[in-house]
Design a protein around this nucleic acid. Structure first.
Length: 261
DNA sequence: AAGTCATTCAACCGCCTTCTG
DNA sequence: CCAGAAGGCGGTTGAATGACT
């Protein structure tokens, strides 16, 4: 007999969240904070799985989220971090204020991966593709990207980081070294002391650009509520800059018009 | 205008890790 | 120390949307 499902599959709703559900979840978390996710649906009056509530909150409703495409600096940082950490999206996301693992993972798969392939770089190992493969790539796009990097020395660092510092996780994990040791070493890399200076600077700049994130109290540390929620953005008349300033009850009552999906 | 294909991203699934009694 | 519960994570899916014919 397998593991028990986390929710009663017959009772839980699936698929896209409605504005009404979002409202309930937001109100509940604002009032009670993040507690036991399994209990959230019941307490908040939602017919959703606790996991689904957590995902919805962390990936979409959390007020400290940035929305929109990753900036060039963020993209470069993702590439650099990926070259060190591999597909550890949550760790990568932890280094980018206001970004979620899901968002970064999606962006990697839809944009960055293609970009690197076009440049003749293997997105898994971050090494140049085999000569014949690379030769078939579009040279112009590669040249274009590299020329951009002239004005952005961080990109140069990204492209050369493996040469100078740490070899790719994939390569290492294929060696004789036990996987566990490799994993531990990767975790060691998370210590800021071991970041190359350029990467640290890049990260500092990103964090400075999101002042509230420096206090990164991801519970309810809250920069711009508008950014986190397009339907709320539509109600900018409220002029809220910081979630802390919002009375939870005010959110319950006001401005929460039905979102069109 | 209609049909088809490609792309994006929110959400789900299931495994792994951590916590708790 | 162990087992079960809960949380977290990465891979994958599929609906929505856009681009193209």
């Amino acid at each position: 007999m397998g593991r028990q499902p986390c929710c009663d599959k017959l009772e839980v709703k699936k698929g896209p969240w409605t504005a009404e559900e979002d409202k309930k979840l937001i109100n509940f978390i604002l009032t009670n904070g993040q507690c036991c996710w399994r209990a959230v649906p019941k307490l908040a009056g939602l017919r959703r799985c606790g996991k689904s509530c957590r995902l919805r909150w962390t990936n979409y409703l959390r007020p400290d989220l940035k929305r929109g495409l990753l900036s060039d600096a963020e993209e470069n940082l993702v590439i650099d971090l990926h070259s060190r950490l591999g597909n550890r999206w949550s760790m990568i996301a932890a280094k980018l204020p206001g970004r979620t693992d899901n968002e970064i993972k999606n962006h990697w798969n839809t944009h960055i991966k293609k970009k690197l392939l076009k440049m003749g770089i293997d997105p898994v190992t971050h090494k140049p593709l085999k000569k014949e493969e690379a030769a078939s790539q579009d040279n112009s796009s590669s040249a274009e990207y590299l020329s951009q990097s002239d004005s952005d020395h961080n990109q140069v660092n990204v492209l050369s980081s493996n040469e100078n510092s740490i070899s790719s996780p994939i390569e290492n994990s294929c060696g004789d070294e036990p996987l566990l040791q490799e994993t531990d070493r990767r975790y060691d890399l998370l210590s800021n002391d071991s970041w190359p200076e350029e990467t640290s600077l890049l990260m500092d700049a990103l964090w400075e650009s999101v002042p509230d994130a420096q206090n990164a109290n991801y519970d309810l540390a809250l920069s711009s509520w508008e950014d986190s929620s397009s339907w709320f953005l539509d109600s900018q008349d409220f002029g809220f800059n910081c979630f802390n300033e919002i009375e939870p009850h005010a959110l319950q009552i006001s401005g929460m018009e039905e979102k069109e999906y």
